[in-house]
């Protein structure tokens, strides 16, 4: 008997006189993590804590800005660390997970190097150039390691660079434009990742990555459009809305095709929020608020009912 889920035991238990010992045995044998899972967990736990703590130790060391230490020694130290960690990662005997964790650590060290550079030479390296340089120069690590957490770090860096750029350099950009860009970048990343992994050109990407990126881009779209509704920037808003329409449609299509309930839930939720904002724009009287609360309840219920029907259909097809 493979494929037994916790929920299956829950359901049968309610309609049968299972004993504590029996249920305990099934849970321990089929549901709980076994020896191999624990070993894997402990190994990863130790190495992640090891690399994580050491790298944060290095970050704090340079944040301390030790005045007596000559700048060349400081730079040499970081560069030495980057070279040695990266070379360790190149050793053939190392397990691929560990290799990737080490590479992630050295990608963080590259950030330390640029921060140090800014600290020593006072190059007016405001935060935006720092993040841009960091992002650009770890590209090789990211591509070579092809490790999801490292890709995630990379994407966070890209987003941060963009936000800082809009705050420090492109101050004339409207809020909507910034949200449109953030939304588009993350949507493109999501689109490419999904396209590559469904066409089997890359290894399947873990769901947490897809879901986080999807959640981020949907949130950016929702905030951008909501701001657009209330502030009426004539130029950016229609562009954002049209991109959002296309991306949302693609998202729904992908959700239906890949049987992923997540996409089918967040996109309608975003649309519900946007419609509610539109309704408030029309009138913010009491009756409208009553209408909105009724609308939200009705629409969420409608979405949930449909999601459950779809799920039922999917499990029948299996």
């Amino acid at each position: 008997m493979k494929n037994i889920q916790r929920e299956d035991i829950y359901i049968i238990n309610r309609h049968a006189d299972l004993t504590e010992r029996g249920v305990d045995r099934v849970l321990k044998e089929k549901i709980y993590n076994d020896k191999d899972a624990w070993k894997k967990f402990l190994r990863l736990f130790f190495i992640i804590l090891g690399i994580g703590f050491s790298v944060s130790g290095v970050v704090f060391f340079f944040a301390y800005n030790w005045a007596d230490l000559h700048k060349f020694i400081k730079i040499a130290l970081v560069e030495g660390l980057i070279i040695s960690t990266t070379s360790v990662a190149l050793l053939p005997k190392i397990n691929s997970n560990v290799r990737n964790i080490i590479l992630t650590g050295s990608a963080v060290l590259v950030g330390v190097l640029f921060a140090l550079f800014g600290q020593i030479y006072q190059t007016g390296a405001n935060a935006y150039d720092f993040f841009l340089a960091w992002t650009l120069f770890i590209t090789i690590w990211v591509v070579v390691a092809n490790y999801t957490p490292l890709w995630f770090l990379y994407l966070i860096l890209i987003n941060t660079t963009l936000v800082l750029y809009s705050q420090q350099v492109a101050k004339d950009w409207s809020e909507i434009l910034v949200f449109t860009l953030l939304f588009s970048i993350n949507a493109i990343v999501l689109f490419v990742t999904v396209a590559l992994s469904t066409s089997k050109r890359i290894e399947p990407v873990p769901n947490w990555f897809l879901y986080s990126v999807a959640l981020a881009s949907t949130t950016f779209a929702t905030i951008g459009i909501t701001i657009g509704i209330f502030e009426e920037y004539a130029i950016a808003s229609p562009i954002l809305v049209s991109i959002a329409l296309i991306v949302f449609a693609l998202g729904i299509w992908h959700g239906l095709k890949s049987k992923s309930i997540f996409f089918l839930a967040i996109i309608p939720f975003s649309v519900i929020v946007i419609i509610s904002a539109l309704l408030i724009k029309v009138s913010d009287g009491e009756m409208m608020l009553l209408l909105i609360s009724l609308f939200i309840i009705a629409s969420i219920t409608f979405v949930i009912k449909n999601l459950m029907n779809i799920q039922k259909k999917w499990s029948n097809e299996r």
Binding site: D36, K39, K40, L42, R43, F46, I47, L49, G50, I51, G52, F53, S54, V55, S56, G57, V58, V59, F60, F61, A63, Y64, W66
Partner: peptide
């Protein structure tokens, strides 16, 4: 920050040692 850095770094080294120490035991 310097003391913190030493604390963090030594904890990190401790875990890396722990990793190698348990490597054989925890190998699949």
């Amino acid at each position: 920050l310097l003391t913190k850095s030493i604390l963090l770094f030594s904890t990190g080294v401790l875990f890396i040692i722990l990793y190698f120490f348990t490597y054989k035991k925890l190998a699949p």
